[in-house]
Design a protein around this nucleic acid. Structure first.
Lengths: 221, 221
DNA sequence: TCATATTATTTACTGTCAGTAGTTATTTTA
DNA sequence: TAAAATAACTACTGACAGTAAATAATATGA
């Protein structure tokens, strides 16, 4: 029976996905509470209620597991950008300020969807070792996805310049500046987080200020 | 004989310093060529031509040794800022653009003094794994120094606003934005570093562009 | 429905490395 | 020149990432 096998294969896939999700959830919990270095694979296994080698069936290394956690953020980010691009293609922006606003909003929204993913991403970039220690595959996944977001953003900016919404300049440089600004600010906030009580609100107002500054610099008068 | 002992004590201190410098030099070489995770204390010891326990006589942990490497960067940064502050106090800035330029130059110069130190600093500024694993003493040293630089920068901006060199706005927000921008951009560059050949030059031009943008946004017309 | 094949999971291990205990060598003191 | 103090070393321990080999669970097919 052809169909029966297929059904079983699908159920197996579902179960496999569930296992993976379970591992990811456990990993997230432990990594996020203890940090990368202090987290042991044994503890993640304990939290996921499975044995350690089972984790290794699904993730080749500790780093690969760690890096898998930041994919949701990158994906959310990409889909936000795709929306902006559509709006841009439909010529629905009448001025650059609105575009800049959407850009920042996209970032903030992705941050809201999974704030810890961003933090994971941050510590990832900061511990520049980690990315280098990844095996080729997962580095490719991460960097492919990251690259896609990166290029989408740059593409967006270029289009906006063509439409006269933004001042003409190197889209590469501008894109790097904006990314740097966004990532950097969240990091500075994180670093203050121990001292500060209402980080989230402060992040928001600082980002709003940054948005204003950026708009005043890149929107033609 | 009082004086004789003193001379000997001084020579001992010198020798101790030399040993420490030797360890630091070896550590720098290995850490920066292999990254934190891939570096072993045995290898540092080998490079420093001593045994491993000797390192532990001077540095309590691997992290403490690692963190000691970033102090020069923080200090260089601070001293650059102090120069700017003196210039500001002497009313030697005629416009905000020159101040912004000096600000960026200070950053770039510190980066040049020890580019890898900045990367180290990045991971420490934030409450990363590493800083939590430090013993209390060295954590205090690092974070005190970092905080000092931070506050000096904010102070600088405030003074500049008072002198009408910069537009009036929250010096806290602006300081966070600028730090975020600088740290973020270097990180974005790091991320690209694997793909890019001439990172250093690209960092420079991107920072120059960021400087222009920032100046046009915060210098009153 | 039972033997066989396949896949998932586990127990029990290995190798590496940060950090240390206890010993030996070197220098200072008196 | 013997005793005290300091500095460095050899040889270890414990923790942990990752794995080999065994076992359990599930699917297949007569």
């Amino acid at each position: 029976m052809q169909k029966h096998q297929e059904v079983i294969r699908e159920r197996k896939k579902r179960e496999k996905d569930q296992r993976i999700q379970g591992i990811l959830a456990a990993a997230k919990k432990v990594f996020f509470s203890k940090g990368y270095l202090r987290t042991t694979m044994d503890e993640i296994a304990f939290e996921a209620e499975i044995s350690k080698p089972t984790i290794y069936q699904y993730f080749r290394t500790k780093d690969e597991l760690y890096s898998a956690l930041m994919l949701p953020f990158l994906e959310e980010f990409g889909s936000q950008f795709e929306k902006i691009e559509k709006k841009l293609d439909a010529r629905r922006y009448t001025n650059g300020k609105a575009l800049v606003k959407d850009f920042f909003r996209a970032f903030l929204k992705s941050y809201e969807v999974s704030p810890d993913s961003l933090r994971v991403a941050n510590s990832f970039f900061q511990q520049s070792d980690l990315i280098n220690e990844l095996n080729a595959d997962s580095r490719l996944t991460i960097s492919t996805r990251g690259k896609y977001d990166f290029e989408l953003a740059r593409d967006l900016l270029e289009k906006a310049m063509d439409q006269g919404l933004l001042r003409k300049m190197s889209s590469y440089a501008l894109s790097d500046i904006i990314w740097g600004l966004l990532l950097g600010i969240t990091q500075v906030m994180d670093m203050k987080a121990t001292r500060l009580t209402n980080t989230d609100k402060y992040l928001r107002t600082t980002l709003a200020e940054a948005e204003k500054l950026l708009a005043s610099a890149i929107v033609p008068r």
